[in-house]
């Protein structure tokens, strides 16, 4: 059970049950859709971008506990950040969940997102954790086509 508790930490379960910023953003000027064909997870990310700063960010969609919590926590941690900071955080998060050596709990800039460390023990779930982030990147770059994890 210890691996499971690492994967499904309380904070993750909390965000799954009560996702933050789960709404359509009326003032959004950037938007992208992401899809994980393997499990049917869908997410839409809305951004209000002004002078290179993420004034507001929200999401909608349906997915598993990991993908919902990841999207929810991502929106919380990115509000007010610059696009450069967001890209850097994407890299950091990606390294964390894929288990890149040197990344991990002590990664200072990830803050609360470090709870996703447990995902690295579940390779098939990495896509769940990173779907929202890939979609965020597409929204920043204004991709028209839906992002797929495959």
């Amino acid at each position: 059970m210890s691996d499971l508790r690492d994967l499904y930490q309380q904070v993750i379960l909390d965000h799954t049950k009560r996702p933050r910023n789960f709404r359509k953003l009326e003032k959004a000027n950037h938007k992208a859709e992401g899809y994980n064909p393997l499990c049917g997870d869908k997410v839409t990310i809305y951004l209000e971008l002004e002078d290179g700063i993420l004034r507001d960010i929200s999401f909608q969609g349906s997915g598993c506990a990991i993908s919902t919590a990841s999207a929810s926590m991502m929106t919380e941690s990115l509000k007010g950040k610059t696009t450069t900071e967001a890209q850097a955080l994407f890299e950091c998060f990606h390294d964390l969940v894929t288990g890149k050596p040197g990344s991990g709990r002590d990664a200072p800039d990830l803050g609360k997102l470090a709870v996703f460390t447990g995902v690295r023990e579940f390779p098939v779930r990495v896509k769940c954790a990173s779907l929202a982030w890939h979609t965020l990147r597409a929204a920043l770059e204004d991709h028209q086509e839906a992002v797929s994890t495959e």
Binding site: M1, D3, L4, C39, G40, D41, C64, A65, T68, R125
Partner: peptide, 21 residues
């Protein structure tokens, strides 16, 4: 609950089921 989460937890118990579409 999403089937994927159920599948992961069952797998920890040694139980192989299919989750997905």
């Amino acid at each position: 609950l999403h089937p994927h989460d159920i599948g992961t937890i069952l797998d920890q118990e040694g139980i192989a089921v299919r989750t997905g579409h």
